[in-house]
């Protein structure tokens, strides 16, 4: 049952990811990226990460994709669409991609994963609830990185405004 759902979601995610790379039109690529993000979010549900699935849909498929589509609207793409979408080094890249995959697969096949389990087994997660357990660990053990992430978002916001605004007084 689980395996069937995994294969369905994974197959659709990989298909959409391939379409993101191969579509000529930027808007089509963006919409296929939304579909990829949705299928990956459903994989998170299979992995008992319901909170992260919701965050993925809200932040990625909601905020980031709207940002990308707005940028596509702001920029006149006619000139971009006419040129050849592929870089001239594409055969080399296509050759190197499977090599990268092969390396990762070899490492995964040889890897020995530690089997010292942590405290959040799936039974306990089901009893406590994923979001509650996640919040408890985020606001205790990972509190300092959480604060740093908020500073990072502030810096990104200021940087985006400064970069994208028009020069004043010109």
């Amino acid at each position: 049952m689980d395996l069937g759902f995994f294969l369905l979601f994974a197959g659709l995610a990989v298909f959409s990811a391939l379409m993101v790379v191969t579509q000529k039109d930027v808007v089509h690529s963006a919409l296929f990226l939304v579909s990829t993000l949705f299928w990956v979010a459903s994989l998170y549900v299979l992995l008992q990460a319901e909170f992260l699935a919701a965050v993925q849909v809200l932040v990625y498929a909601g905020a980031i994709m709207v940002l990308i589509l707005f940028t596509v609207l702001l920029i006149q793409m006619e000139e971009v669409q006419k040129t050849n979408p592929w870089h001239r080094q594409w055969p080399l890249a296509l050759l190197l991609g499977p090599f990268l995959l092969l390396e990762i697969v070899l490492i995964v096949r040889r890897g020995l994963f530690p089997f010292q389990l942590g405290e959040f087994t799936s039974d306990k997660l089901a009893a406590v609830g994923n979001t509650e357990a996640f919040g408890q660990i985020l606001f205790t053990r990972y509190f300092f990185p959480f604060e740093v992430a908020s500073v990072l978002l502030l810096a990104a916001m200021i940087g985006a405004i400064v970069l994208a605004k028009k020069e004043l007084g010109k």
Binding site: A13, A17, V26, P98, I104, V105
Partner: peptide, 27 residues
């Protein structure tokens, strides 16, 4: 799951290397 992650990573890497449009590279 690890293979799926590797495949998605590889598709993204090939896209970064082969596409000419900066927005698609970001995606």
């Amino acid at each position: 799951y690890l293979w799926l992650g590797a495949i998605l990573f590889m598709i993204g890497a090939v896209g970064v290397l082969t596409r000419r449009n900066a927005i698609i590279i970001l995606m």
